[in-house]
Amino acid sequence: MILIIDALNRHHHQSVLDEMFQLRARVFGERLGWDVRIENGREIDEFDALDPAYVIGLDDDCNVVSCVRALQTTGPHMLADVFADILQGEPPLRSATLWESTRFCVDTERLILSGRGPGSVSRATCELMVGSLEYARNNGIEDIVTVIDPVMNRVLKRSDNAPYDYVGETVQMGKTKAMAALLDCSEERIARVRAFAGIEGSVFVDEAALVKARLRKAARAEGLTEYFIDQLDMASSPEELAAALALIDAVLGPQKGVATESLLPVHMPDSAG
């Protein structure tokens, strides 16, 4: 399911945004090795300060699994500024009905870890594509210019969502290459991606229901944390400690990194002794 966050509703979804910035840090900073600034485990740049719109994909447990950022090409945007190399010094396209999309990413690790297999990866990717194309289309936008790397370019082609053209050149950007692709927001394209991934019906989430579900989830996680701390406290051998950690891994999934890091330094000496 897809959630749109912009300046008007972001105060309702601060925790979703925070998860999204962490996802971007994992994907662009760690996995893809882009030249991005990461602070405190979050990738945030100057364009995030310009009230962009975020299209965010969530899994059934309301975890952030994908995201992309939209800005108008009439105003400040990345191709006009930081990605100017791609355009080889040419002025960028500027049109009321053309949006720029950047920072498209999907949390492949979480999806594989969640045991749903590689198939769910492409579904999450396609759902985000459908969500962003439909969001743009619902706003009278006809085309999207998107800054992507060759991997994403192949993903687009493989999901029956191939760019109809590119602007500028493919240039080296940190450890990878970057290019600017053009996608139309036509009903035909949306229908093709939907058919490819078997997506039917609305992809957009009920905002009020999402807020409630995430509050419930946070409360549950807090209760569990106390239980986990007890388990770790009671562990009297390395085997029992390993079992307790495995349980935390199994239950909290991808949050384990955070959970074990914050718990381990306190409890390891006890168990070792």
């Binding site: 090409t73 049109s95 109809y164």
Partner: peptide, 17 residues
């Protein structure tokens, strides 16, 4: 040697500029 859609997207941008 470009698509009609590419012509259109550049033309739209030129009109608005």
């Amino acid at each position: 040697s470009i698509s009609t859609r590419t012509v259109e997207v550049h033309l739209r941008s030129a009109r608005e500029k």
